[in-house]
Design a protein around this nucleic acid. Sequence first.
RNA 1: GUCCCCAUCGUCUAGCCUGGCCUAGGACGCUGGCCUUUCAAGCCAGCAACACGGGUUCAAAUCCCGUUGGGGACGCCA
Length: 473
Amino acid sequence: MTHVKVRFAPSPTGSLHIGGVRTALFNWLWARHERGTFILRIEDTDRDRSTDEAIQIILDGMKWVGLNWDEGPYRQTDRIGLYRDRAMQLLERGKAYWCVCSADELEMRRKEAQAKGLTPKYDGRCRDRGITQPTGDAALRFIAPQEGHTVVEDLIKGTVTFDNAVLDDLIILRSNGYPTYNFSVVVDDALMGITHVIRGDDHLNNTPRQIPIFQALGHPIPRFGHLSMIMGADKAKLSKRHGATSVLAYKEMGYLPEALINYLVRLGWSHGDQEIFSLQEMIDHFSFDHVQKSAAVFNPDKLLWMNAQYIKQSEPARIAALLLPFLDQVGVGDAARKAPDGWLAKLVTLFQERARTLVEMAQAAVPYLQEPIEMDADAAVKLLTSAIAPALEKLAERFQAAPDFSHAPLEEVFKQVIEEEGLKMGQLAQPVRLAVTGRTASPGLFEVIELLGRDRTLARLRKGIARAKRGNA
RNA sequence: GUCCCCAUCGUCUAGCCUGGCCUAGGACGCUGGCCUUUCAAGCCAGCAACACGGGUUCAAAUCCCGUUGGGGACGCCA
């Protein structure tokens, strides 16, 4: 029984996006399922595009979704010596050679080939030059096999066969001395003892290029598993064009990390008909047998539904804590912080079934924290009429006298009033709801009133009454 | 252009490997209903798919071939 070791290896050239998180998730799940090791490795060998800021964003994103790593984060730029060392070994063993073709030249030849409808491939013109001590800029190329086939037994795709004739001698060391991706991944995967390389579909074509490098390095070849891509509604690979792709953007939009994770795991993986999974369930059931081979379209509606499910299930106190920054954004954060202990959690319970995101919840919570409230003017014209004013006044008096200001007895009081006044529930409930919340839609009226408490309820009711009296009959 | 991958409701998917249990199941969304003090939630119902063509077989969503369609890769990016 070998100890499973997997890695997530993002490059810090932008934000951590949804697709990256899914790749990380599947690696993480496999590691946890197998009680193996999950490594985080930052592939920053592109000096021009990698930034420290992007590294921080990746770390923050990983932490937010809870994908904790056992080793790392390693940074490839801290390991440059390792790659150079291995590259020189390959050179000495005759498995690599110096190439003095300039980047511009290569670019030109590539374009030419493409224009002629040929496969753009390095022609190998430096392969036999035998350059031992390059004077100017030179890159080191790996001697790729040209005969036979390379077969990959992919954990997800099954057997994939490549004709080695399509392989070209790829650069493993740039003329600036930095290794290229295809080389540094192999060196690291080899040195770190990675047993399973789980990565995006877009790397499938790199696999036959990397396998010979493992061999040249004298290292066993890991298992590979290539996950299908996530696409936007237009069926193209998910990118910035598709709006929110950064994980942290979902945090800001009021999503719960566990909802995002649950949504993502179902994008390409299934366990029968089950939709909602606890982390432990995912870990227990995860295997590559049930990973989908085909690409999946990202469906924001289903994510929203998933988030609503998790909001409903969560502890009110936890949601209340997470809600605070969102309340700040709608200007009622301070009011919420001043509320008595547990009050905000109580408010949360009223909206857990009514909000799909924390942003929605914060917006819905405004009338319960803001003073004075905003009144829906159109609704006021319709509902706060002089005809209803007497009933409202009676209700206000009874509420004022109510010994117990909690929802059940208040509802009794209310029912008495409508009976005495010969009204139907809705005839009085809607005007009261409007007076008390400023809106025509709210959680259960009596829960709302209980939450607001006697003073605020009565003050708002009286304002409503005043308006009703002024209003038209 | 070349190489590689993929193909079940609009979307995510079950079923495929190990053909009959499939009159193709579930979920999101949509539509209608119930519940109801509003809005939700919940419950019930409905709409909706095996890309196409050939084989193999008593029998194909399932196996094989082809076509078409989609995606990805062809960098001194990762």
